[in-house]
Amino acid sequence: MQQTSTTEPPVRTQPAAVDTDKSRTFRRAFADIGAGLRTRQLWSHLGWQDIRQRYRRSTLGPLWITLSMGITAIGLGLLYSQLFGAPISAYVPYITAGFLTWNFIMSSLKEGSNTFIRNAGLVKHLPSPLTVYALRTTWRLSIIFLHNLVIYVIVIAVFFTSLNEPYKLVDNAKDVHPGLGWYSLLAIPALAIFLINSVWVVLLFGIISTRFRDVPQFIDSISSLLFFMTPIVWSVDTLAAKFGEGADTGPRTLIYQLNPMYHFLQIVRAPLIGGEQSWHHWWIVLSVTVIGWCLTLVVLRNYRARVSYWV
């Protein structure tokens, strides 16, 4: 008699659930930043390629941006110096340095918010850290800034005699600016802080924009408003000349004191033109830098793995 087998089929065990939280660690966020910094040849090459492709077959190349900015800055400097009763020798350098700095700030916001969206193909197919794309954008903007610096050098060379001694930005202002000197070297660490902030701005707004596509349009919409609210074509000295002692108090001071872009602008522009500067600008900028990087690390920790799906 044949005996039937009573052996039961093997029980299939379910695979262990993958712990998706393991990728959400600050260690991996710092590793992304470190790996991006080490791949200098990649992001520097990509940044140069962006400049070359944009101005391919152009005779002047990136100098077209410099020429355009120079014409705008000098033209507005001549115009507003007459409107505000300011000496041309002081106001043209003031607006020129302001335009140079403002262009870098707003370019970091605008192009940073579109960084991962424009590089969607590379983000999906090239296994590289997100920081590479942020450094690529910052490097490209730095190259453009250096090209635009030619206008500043020309303007300073023309008005060097007037800026090399104490001067007033507006004829009726009470503040006397010290003029160019060793103090002007503070522009170097200020520009270094700009680069450090540009990286976190590109990372933070770039990641957020991949999830919420309205962010780039929102930044474009408020850019003009921010321009006129920031002392670029007008100055705090103008308010002091108009309102006297009341210019330092009251709601009108909130227009610029609560505007972080004003403080970033001031730590670079004031040394470049030999202007008077308060140290509270540096404390505010450093505070914004620390807070910005902390927010960026949190966002990078939680959402860096999702960017390739969102784009």
Rank of each mutant, 00 (worst) to 15 (best):
Q2A: 11
Q3I: 14
E8Y: 08
S23P: 00
F30D: 07
A31R: 09
I33C: 05
G34T: 10
Q53V: 06
R56E: 12
S58L: 03
W64N: 12
W64E: 07
G70A: 11
I71V: 15
A73T: 14
G75K: 00
G77S: 06
L79T: 14
Y80P: 00
Y80T: 13
P87D: 07
P87R: 06
F99C: 09
L100I: 13
F104K: 02
E111F: 12
A134K: 03
A134Q: 05
R140W: 02
S142I: 10
S142G: 11
I143C: 06
I144C: 01
I154G: 05
V158Q: 04
T161W: 10
T161F: 06
A173R: 01
D175L: 14
V176T: 15
G181T: 11
L185K: 06
I188Q: 09
P189D: 07
I193V: 15
L195G: 07
I196F: 13
W200M: 01
W200F: 15
W200I: 01
L203R: 01
L203D: 08
Q217H: 13
S224K: 08
F227C: 01
K242C: 00
K242E: 14
F243W: 15
G246Q: 14
T253R: 12
I255L: 15
L258D: 02
L258H: 04
H263R: 05
I267C: 01
V268T: 11
A270Q: 12
I273V: 15
G274F: 05
E276V: 10
H280Y: 10
L286Q: 00
T296E: 07
